[in-house]
């Protein structure tokens, strides 16, 4: 019953992307990463009931296909999310967003003494169990510290 109500809350999109299974609470952060332009209509659904996660967030964006850079950035925030590509009202592709082993050129190192904050160099983080380790200064950060 609740799911039906949720579906009614937001209409389907004709073309675009739906990011599903985002950890509840991270939906707005995912939207922020995507830098929505005036050409895109976007909607965020927070705390939607989910069989797998209990609660989840969903982001729908009309007329936008995500590039690899954006997908990798989302993967850091929402490693278990699913990306649905919508064309003519139908899901034409569905992929699980996977956390990459290396995150390059996306994040800024929060260590103010890291060389990457002084030299024109692409940042690089290695994804480890405890968090993201800057390849240059070797410090380890939690996801919420780098996003």
């Amino acid at each position: 019953m609740r799911m039906e109500e949720d579906k009614l809350l937001v209409r389907k999109i004709k073309n675009g992307s739906v990011i599903d299974h985002i950890k509840a609470g991270n939906g707005l952060k995912v939207l922020d990463i995507l830098k929505i332009t005036p050409d895109n209509t976007a909607v965020v659904m927070l705390n939607v009931q989910s069989k797998r996660f209990g609660k989840k967030d969903i982001v729908k964006i009309e007329n936008k296909e995500l590039n690899n850079f954006e997908i990798n950035k989302i993967a850091i925030l929402a490693p278990n999310a699913t990306l649905n590509i919508i064309k003519d009202w139908k899901v034409v592709d569905k992929k699980k967003i996977m956390m990459p082993k290396i995150v390059e050129g996306i994040l800024k190192c929060p260590n103010s003494n890291c060389i990457t904050n002084y030299e024109p160099v692409k940042t690089r983080f290695c994804v480890e169990e405890r968090g993201l380790r800057c390849w240059y200064c070797e410090r380890i950060f939690r996801v919420n510290e780098v996003i």
Binding site: N111, N113, C114, I115, T116, Y118, E119, V121, C134, W135, Y136, C137, E138, R139
Partner: peptide, 10 residues
Amino acid sequence: RHPKEGAPRL
């Protein structure tokens, strides 16, 4: 030797 962390890696 450099005062910035990660300079040798760079």
